[in-house]
Structures are given as structure tokens and as C-alpha cells.
């Protein structure tokens, strides 16, 4: 006889399978503890008493799925999170990118876009923005919509100037946006160099000829199988000697691409694709 918790695990398996079959989003290879917490949270907001009651809704109510997807994929981001990493991108990676006539950057899992604008500001200050294009992708449409608008609450930028300066900022963060009442909008000259798009790392294709990929705090949600899949995708999207930046608790050890990359800056989780690939 199974106890209540084991039944709950089976219900989650069935729910994730239903999402996969109906919509093609694959959460089956996500770290289970976080997913479980997010599903329980969503159930608490719905009229369902059991997780399995969400399954018919997944099949027949797309708006229910959209709101569940939003809860399953939300992640928190901010401008200049980990400023030392952005300083290192500025000081160590950008000089190597200067030789290219056109610079392609893929920000995989950009969430609501704050770090894409962070990158654009860095590129502007290093004189590279006019030949750079940032492709910022996420599989959460609501996040992508928010990112494309480029409008954020003014209070979300609290402490931001400090972080900006520790990332090697040369001016003031307020030089890069217009403030109106309680909101800010990033300048069009930054927006023009960012393409926000829907992309699902679990099933969509590579981006060709990227010089730099940021994939930060994405792998922490995945099991080994899915981590390797995403890292293969990153490797295949990069030019020879292109750069990969991971989150500060992520690394390439024990992954399928370990031999394909050299450590470029270990403390900042920056890797460089080996020549010849």
C-alpha cells in the first residue's frame, strides 16, 4: 500500500507526462524538489484538492496550462546580479570579441530580460554595441513579453547603481533609461540590439555562430540528462573559441562537454570552446 507522499509523486509524474504530451514542454528531467514545490504552490491557488485533478485541466484548458507554466518557469533575476562576473565579461571577454566584425551573443534562459539589458549597457560602454546583437530567449512567453517591453518598476533598480559600478560601470545607470513616475524604460539604442524570442532549451534547435553564450542559473534546475542536452546545444551554437558563462554555482565538471571547453576564468564560471571544434 502506498502512502500519501508516494501517491503525490506518482501524481506529479502523470501531470508532467500530460504537459509533455499535450504541449511539448518537458519538465520530466527537472530537479524534482523545486518542481514539486512549484506545483504545490500552484495547486494552493487553484480549486484543486489533489495534484491529479490538474491533469484534465491541462488537457482541456489552455489558460490553466499557461498560468501553471508561468509558475513552473518563473525565476528571479536582476540587473547586474553578480557584478564581478559582468566585470570579468567586460575586462576579459570583450577584448577578445573586438576582432569580430559582428558579435553574436545568446542569452539562454533570460527570464524577464534584466541581464540582457545589463549586457547591452556593457557593450555600449566598451564601444561594441553597434556591431553586436543579443539574442535573449526564454520558454516563458509572459517573461519574454515583459522583457521585450523593457519597462521595469523603478524600485526594482534599488542598489542597482552600486552593482553597476562594481561591474566596472563608467557612467550612471540612470543614463541608460527614461524614468517616468514609478517605472523606467530602457533607451531605444539598447533595445535595438536585443532580439527577445521564445526558445525552449529542452527541444528547440541550436543558434548558429554565437561568440558568447550566457546560460546562468538554468542548469541548476535540470537533471544530468537535460544538463548534457543543453550543454551540447551551447557547444554546437558557439564558434570555435567562443565563450560560455554559467551561473556561479554551476560548472562543467562531470558533463558531456567537459573535454570540449577550456577553463577561461574558473571563479567566474567562464569557459572557452576549444579550437578545432
Amino acid at each position: 500500500m502506498k502512502n500519501k507522499k508516494n501517491i503525490e509523486n506518482d501524481e506529479i509524474d502523470c501531470l508532467l507526462e500530460a504537459i509533455w504530451r499535450r504541449y511539448g514542454y518537458d519538465f520530466r528531467h527537472y530537479s524534482r524538489a523545486s518542481i514539486k514545490r512549484r506545483i504545490r504552490h500552484h495547486m494552493g491557488l487553484s480549486d484543486c484538492q489533489h495534484i491529479s485533478e490538474m491533469i484534465p485541466k491541462i488537457f482541456h484548458d489552455e489558460s490553466f496550462f499557461e498560468s501553471l507554466l508561468n509558475d513552473l518557469s518563473i525565476s528571479v533575476t536582476q540587473m547586474f546580479r553578480d557584478p564581478v562576473v559582468f566585470n570579468s565579461i567586460r575586462q576579459q571577454i570583450f577584448p577578445k570579441l573586438k576582432t569580430y566584425a559582428r558579435i553574436n551573443i545568446w542569452h539562454a534562459g533570460c527570464s524577464t530580460g534584466e541581464e540582457a539589458y545589463t549586457l547591452a549597457i556593457l557593450l555600449e560602454e566598451e564601444g561594441l554595441l553597434n556591431r553586436a546583437q543579443i539574442y535573449a530567449t526564454d520558454f516563458n512567453n509572459a517573461s519574454i513579453d515583459k522583457a521585450s517591453r523593457g519597462i521595469y518598476p523603478l524600485k526594482s533598480l534599488q542598489n542597482c547603481n552600486e552593482l553597476y559600478l562594481s561591474s566596472g560601470g563608467k557612467h550612471k545607470i540612470s543614463d541608460y533609461y527614461h524614468a517616468n513616475y514609478e517605472a523606467i524604460k530602457f533607451k531605444q539604442s539598447l533595445v535595438d540590439h536585443i532580439t527577445f524570442a521564445h526558445h525552449n532549451l529542452t527541444c528547440d534547435q541550436v543558434f548558429a555562430q554565437m561568440h558568447l553564450i550566457l546560460c546562468r542559473n538554468v542548469l541548476i534546475y535540470f537533471d544530468k540528462t537535460l544538463q548534457n542536452h543543453v550543454l551540447d546545444l551551447c557547444r554546437d551554437s558557439l564558434v570555435s573559441q567562443g565563450f560560455l558563462v554559467l551561473g556561479d554555482k554551476e560548472n562543467l565538471d562531470f558533463t558531456s562537454v567537459r573535454e570540449d571547453f577550456d577553463n577561461f576564468s574558473q571563479p567566474h564560471r567562464i569557459y572557452r570552446k576549444r579550437a578545432g571544434w
Binding site: N9, R32, S34, R37, V76
Partner: peptide
């Protein structure tokens, strides 16, 4: 637990981290 991340335990008795909402 590392600062800035939630710390969780998986069934496999391994850690996972998340940057979900506080």
C-alpha cells in the same frame, strides 16, 4: 546553503538549488 539560492534535497539524497522568489 549558498547565499542567494534556495537549498533543496532530492529523493536521491542530493542537493538542488533554485533562484525562485524569496
Amino acid at each position: 546553503a549558498p547565499r542567494g539560492y534556495h537549498l533543496l534535497v532530492e529523493e536521491s539524497h542530493r542537493f538542488s538549488l533554485s533562484v525562485d522568489l524569496p
